[in-house]
């Protein structure tokens, strides 16, 4: 992202002789942020499409969906909601600390985020393994014997929470990469766009859960 060679900005002058800066694509903070926001839009379209499918079947199979929602573990789901909330806070604080020049504290907050994300995944793992243990997973004989709406509810449940979980795993990977960049001095208190974008990504992951949680766990 940074290019040491272009330290002097390129200036062009209009007819009146006013200077205008040529933006250097190698070091364009606003551009990097805009690019990442566009990426976030694609993610919103992906999850939005899944919610579209969810809504489509919720309309057709409301009783089945309500009954199936009853079977999910709200305590674990609720705990996970709070964990993500906390992790979004710690991610944000790490950015604040970095920009105030407190590199070590910033790293500490990233570590806290990573730990919280891992706890989220562990809880998710227990939730899933419980459901798989009682025979509820796509294509299982138990599930196939149930009503169509129930099959669709769990099909969507595993797809959407699975996709969300995948995003958390990727997020953890990105955070380790960010830590490495901080250690090697590539991210500094003035050149922080990578960490800022990581924080944006993490907020997106949180944002998706804000909708996933009530729609799956609380519609009964």
């Amino acid at each position: 992202m940074s290019n040491a060679s272009s330290t002097e900005p390129e200036i062009v002058y209009d007819k009146q002789g006013n200077p205008h800066e040529v933006i250097d694509f190698n070091n364009d903070y606003e551009g990097a942020k805009l690019g990442f926001w566009l990426f976030i839009f694609t993610e919103i379209m992906i999850f939005g499409a899944m919610f579209l499918v969810f809504g489509f079947y919720l309309f057709q199979f409301s009783p089945d969906f309500i009954a199936a929602s009853e079977g999910l573990n709200r305590v674990l789901g609720g705990t996970n909601t709070f964990i993500l909330l906390l992790s979004a806070l710690s991610m944000g604080l790490s950015l604040v600390k970095l920009r105030n020049g407190k590199i070590d504290e910033s790293k500490k907050f990233i570590w806290i985020t990573i730990i919280l994300a891992t706890i989220f995944l562990t809880i998710k793992y227990f939730e899933w393994s419980h459901e798989i243990h009682i025979g509820i997973y796509p294509g299982s004989p138990t599930l196939d014997a149930l009503s169509d709406g129930t099959k669709l509810f769990f099909g969507l449940y595993f797809t959407m929470t699975g996709l969300h979980g995948l995003h958390i795993i990727i997020g953890i990977g990105v955070m380790f990469w960010v830590l490495a960049l901080i250690n090697s001095g590539k991210i500094t208190s003035t050149n922080f766009v990578v960490l800022e974008n990581t924080a944006l990504y993490w907020d997106l992951v949180h944002l998706v859960w804000v909708f996933v949680f009530p729609l799956f766990y609380l519609i009964y």
Binding site: I23, D28, V96, T190
Partner: peptide, 18 residues
Amino acid sequence: MNTNSNQESHPINASVYY
């Protein structure tokens, strides 16, 4: 080092996060 004026955009504050 950085001459791009955009980088120092808005001030950022921990209390907003809390």
